[in-house]
Design a protein around this nucleic acid. Sequence first.
DNA 1: TGTAATGTTTACCAACCGGTCAAATTATCA
DNA 2: TGATAATTTGACCGGTTGGTAAACATTACA
Lengths: 221, 221
Amino acid sequence: MVLPRAAKTQRRTRIQEEKEEQILEAALEVFSLHGFRGATVDQIAEVAGMSKPNLLYYFRTKEAMHRALITRVLDTWLDPLREFDAEGSPVAEIRSYIRRKLEMARDFPRESRLFANEILQGAPNIEDELKGPLKSLVDEKAAVIRSWARAGKIAKCDPYHLIFSIWSTTQHYADFDVQVRAVLGQNQSGEGRFEDAARFLEQLFLNGLEVRDQPSAIGHA
Amino acid sequence: MVLPRAAKTQRRTRIQEEKEEQILEAALEVFSLHGFRGATVDQIAEVAGMSKPNLLYYFRTKEAMHRALITRVLDTWLDPLREFDAEGSPVAEIRSYIRRKLEMARDFPRESRLFANEILQGAPNIEDELKGPLKSLVDEKAAVIRSWARAGKIAKCDPYHLIFSIWSTTQHYADFDVQVRAVLGQNQSGEGRFEDAARFLEQLFLNGLEVRDQPSAIGHA
DNA sequence: TGTAATGTTTACCAACCGGTCAAATTATCA
DNA sequence: TGATAATTTGACCGGTTGGTAAACATTACA
């Protein structure tokens, strides 16, 4: 008898595990580049090196593939924020958070783009996950940052917008990679690019642009 | 005789001008939400309120529509950076640049998303424009920023990454709007959101997170 | 007004889309 | 080994895609 997907109570075959991995890898490649609607099953099948019906044997629909992929990526994508430690030193925590997010942008740009594509197109499939788990996690960490600010360990600021700005600046190097390369030119596109970005972002977030000789000459509004 | 598009030497009709505007408006709506491949001509035609063949009478192909749209948007999108004035006060220039970019993210989110979609998908149609006009403009402004840093008017920093970080933080509020709303919840999704973001970004870029009482206690690396 | 250019629509096409089906092939294990 | 279940494939389907042809309607203007 044909079991299109492994029955619920049955454990997965070795082949199933391998092929599903293979498919999700290919799906990541294609979805991250074209978004959900722009990606085609044929294309994913070709990248995965198997026939379309074979692919659809493991994931019955294009949407099921996308869902599986998004869920997995979203989970690992939030790891750096989870590690954000309330007990640690604020400066060290923020610096290492920036560094980790930047490393993820460098090492997993496709995951970043997949996520960006999804959000950009209105997040039709993960709205619940954004309003649920994501919001809870951010709320929790925002409270930590706020307590640091209240204790005078860092400047007073809106913790949510701080988190947004760390997300956006770091992910920019994955999502807008083409633009970054085009602007920097070939000379600066090498490995140094990553270190330059890290150095700048640490400076920006920890020290700001203020000239240190004139402590408070620059007010705001 | 049928002239699918206005002949080169002929000036454009009133109807031509109106309809092309109407089409590009609809195209912006659809392309910005689904990207190039994800958008369909039928959909654009429906939003524009005309039949598909009629639409294709003004823009012969989907790609021509997209190209016309991207070119126009890219041009106005760079206006704020063009206004960046070498003669002005660094603090005032940076602050007003942030403010203007943020206003554009608020008032023209579709334009921002269109651009983000294009870059995200590898910028197949505007690579030349990125490496040409865009790079030139950024190079020019980066030189200004560097001269400010050399003159001690602002802290020394990589001007390119500074520009990237202003782009990313401000455009984040347009491109990732769904996520921002989900995280902030309904209470903070109103008009105050914009002002909060503006206040935070000005603080971040002009003052940094440093506590002023201990001027240089926070080193980097 | 007449008429030629411009604008619009209906009907249509070939290619491609996501997905199905039944037959063929391969792995598993008593 | 043999039989049963798991995997793979080619052929195919109805719907959608970008785009075309030609008839029809409207505008601009002498």
